[in-house]
């Protein structure tokens, strides 16, 4: 392979994998045939044209007429995955809180845990195919959540675990804090309202697989939380376990066109919820720990994307269908 051919071949990275597999050799052949003898580097016009062509194809595949089915499936999956994710992250903390609270009043742990019941109900209704009931339940939960949040923010003493002097009470702060409090509930309610058949989303992933992921994630978060608490009780948990699970799920989802659309739907609101610190690290952390977090997250994502088996289904080269 000549250096020129190698350079042309590298340009094909801008094309979808399926397109590269089907047309890559042809395209390289055409580009070489158009090239005058003695040239060592691709013509800049060719480079621009190839990049533009790749982006056009990617955009058309992502949003063109043929992508409607993928987007519908992605919306159905997102409408199930989003409430499950928020439930898992809350149970992952509360389960450990039940254990370590010790002599604290029972309301510190039981009340937050009881707040998960509406989410269980919403997810249950969605899984049973009662889409509108699930959406109604989700919107009622948004209203309840808003009222509770405003009340707690205005008067922190009524909130379990909050000290009465811990928060400023000016209106902009309360509004912003409330908006962030209810944002997950709003996202869930919106997705359940817009998704045509959320129950189909669970079927596409596989209900058994979904249950295994949820149980594993809740157990992992609780075990990691407990370990963090006992090993370094003076240090706040940095949320790396959530990030690791999130990266693993993102890597697995990114193998399929539908999965990538689910990520496109869910990652922007998650980025807002995490306020631009998706890796769960503290704001004042310096670059080194943050760099390590990014590296670990990237490795987990890549491993999950490549699949855990060198051959067979479930890898990038042989993506298994979501169904």
């Amino acid at each position: 392979m000549s250096a020129l051919e190698d350079r042309y071949r590298r340009l094909l990275v801008f094309y979808p994998r399926e397109h590269r597999a089907r047309h890559g050799e042809e395209m390289v052949g055409v580009m070489l045939a158009r090239t005058e003898a003695g040239r060592r580097h691709p013509d800049p016009g060719d480079v621009l044209d190839v990049v533009r062509g790749g982006l056009q194809i990617r955009l058309r595949h992502a949003f063109g007429p043929g992508s409607a089915t993928y987007w519908r499936d992605a919306l159905n999956i997102a409408a199930i995955v989003a409430p499950l994710y928020f439930l898992v992250t809350e149970l992952g903390v509360w389960g450990m809180a039940l254990w370590v609270s010790g002599a604290l009043p029972v309301s510190y742990t039981l009340l937050p845990l009881s707040l998960a019941l509406p989410q269980f109900l919403t997810i249950g209704l969605a899984l049973r195919g009662m889409r509108w009931s699930a959406a109604a339940c989700a919107w009622i939960w948004v209203v309840v959540n808003t009222v509770m949040s405003v009340r707690f923010r205005m008067d922190p003493s009524v909130s379990p675990g909050q000290s009465a002097t811990s928060l400023p009470l000016d209106f902009p702060f309360v509004s912003l804090a409330t908006a962030f409090d209810v944002l997950p509930a709003v996202i869930v309610a919106l997705l359940l309202t817009l998704a045509p058949r959320p129950a189909e989303g669970a079927t596409l992933i596989g209900r058994g697989k979904l249950l295994r992921w949820v149980v594993t994630a809740v157990l992992t978060l609780n075990v990691v939380g407990a370990l963090e608490y006992f090993l370094t009780p003076e240090v706040m948990p940095d949320g790396m376990a959530v990030t690791a699970l999130l990266c693993m799920a993102c890597g697995a989802a990114s193998r399929t066109p539908t999965g990538r659309r689910v990520l496109a739907l869910l990652l922007p609101p998650l980025a807002v919820i995490y306020q631009g610190v998706p890796l769960g690290g503290p704001y004042d952390s310096d670059w080194f720990p943050l760099g390590v977090r990014v590296l670990v997250a990237a490795v987990i994502f890549v491993v999950a994307r490549q699949g855990f088996r060198p051959y067979g289904s479930g890898t990038v080269s042989y993506p298994e269908p979501l169904a």
Binding site: M31, R34, G45, R52
Partner: peptide
């Protein structure tokens, strides 16, 4: 084939339109 289309298009258009690989294969895909 692809290169045949490029040369033919150039001939049909009197040398005015010179397709490149990116444009051609984006068009084929569509």
């Amino acid at each position: 084939h692809g290169y045949g289309v490029i040369t033919d298009v150039q001939e049909i258009s009197g040398g005015r339109v010179r397709l490149r690989a990116g444009t051609l294969y984006a068009a084929f895909d569509r």
